[in-house]
Design a protein around this nucleic acid. Sequence first.
RNA 1: GGCGCGUUCGUCUAGGGGUCUAGGACGCCGGCCUCUCACGCCGGUAACACGGGUUCGAAUCCCGUACGCGCUACCA
Length: 498
Amino acid sequence: MCRRTRGSGPTLESPRCPHLHPLMPDSPVRVRFAPSPTGFLHVGGARTAIYNDLLAQKLGGVNILRIEDTDRRRSDEAMTRQIEDALRWIGVEWDEGPYLQSERLDRHLERAHQLLAEGRAYRAYETPDELDAERARLQKVGETFRYREGRSPLAADEIASRADAGAPFAVRFRMPSEPIRFVDLVRGEVEFLPEVFDDFILLRSDGSPTYHMSVVTDDIDMAVTHVIRGEDHLSNTPKHIALFERLGATVPTFAHLPMILGQNRKRLSKRSGAASVEEFRSQGILPQALYNYLALLGWNPGDEREVMSRETLVEAFTTERLNDSAAVFDPEKLAWMNAQYMSTLDLSEILSHAAPFLTAAGIGVADPDYLAAAVDLLRTRAKTLAELSELAATYFEENLAYDPELTAKFRSQEDLAEHLEQLAARYAAVEPFDKEGLERELRALAEALEVKAGQLIHPVRMALTGAKAGPPLFDVVELVGREATARHLANFVAHLRG
RNA sequence: GGCGCGUUCGUCUAGGGGUCUAGGACGCCGGCCUCUCACGCCGGUAACACGGGUUCGAAUCCCGUACGCGCUACCA
């Protein structure tokens, strides 16, 4: 198995392994991400998109976006738009598309009719109900129903008379009778025996193509070289391979990614918590963090790096380090990852991602420098942009409402109000109003009063932010400024005496 | 039921026959830093699903069992 050979061995990236490189060594790598428009982008899909992105970038290939909207009922333009937005937001790029599968209907039909004409497919006259009945019947006897040519539940003369009467028919693909083997980039060699093959449907009796017909047709026409998709398609792969072959096309290389599970160890879904890119976005997760986290969920660079930019991930990416077992999505670790980006990204970047959250928290951008300074002070203290905005909001309050429970211990300190008034007097005069001077004044006052500096620092923090913990106090005072500091101090003194 | 895939700390993972008294990360616990919180730093907790082989030696190779997941549609 090629993928088991590490180091100097043949790999996808060094195309010396014939199994892994069905195409000419110099033919360009073409991958595609083919979501169905369900109204949101699932994180499992997002991860698939990321690996496609990474591989295309790594190999200088082409990434294609194709919307599998053949199920008309749940497809519309807005949903397609939603997927594009989500991909763009998370940082996945594509070079071609989006193609809409529904717009390629003629082509799917053409190829299906070609197969029919060539005798690689045939007409089948059973109705879905009849097939269901047959399945149920065999089920009872402990057998499995598999549709192969000549094994119809219908009598031969019945089929003939339906055909003569021009009855509607489905078009079924004639599956080969040899085993189908392939080397999956993630799982190694996989084999399916002909005993389990079904002559599956290419065209429904209403003439519409099925998913299998459409995907393979599109993958051929789009010259896709590597199909990276979810494990749920592994069992469909023999069907697809047979179609590629009968259609005279080169079979692409497959990579089937394991599922992403929720905390409940079931496939991640809305029930098991946030499951879509949009949800994380609205929670205030940074796109870089989600991209990074998802890339690491099922892949690792082989060393101990974890926080990695897209560029670094591209440089480090190899399909041979893709994992083959399902992974549980861990929101805690995502939060940590996000915090990493919150504290290291350029402030301007944080600011632009935070803007909608800031607005939602009622924070205006009247003074961009003030906003930036506040965000900079708080960025290491928030795990999400939503938290950040919440924390920042108090820095924009005209007057703060103090929580009696939090201020109880200050109110029981007899001299505190008096001390704070003295501090306020010093702060009114200090020049310049910067943290060094502010600290000097406070410590000098503490010494004169014969109290510990903390005895003043903590109540001042409460006065200015309404919280018992937060950024270093003198940074806060400097930021808040002379005027607001005086106002908050006065309010707090009143609160203490009230 | 059939077929396919999987199983290392709670979670993400490293591991490719001896270097494994199993490494890293998240979480958790403790400490340092410190005006508090957070960041950061230091330390601790915790795992090879089970049973058989093969081998001088197995987390690693083989077989089986258990469990989980996927597919088994005129869904995609």
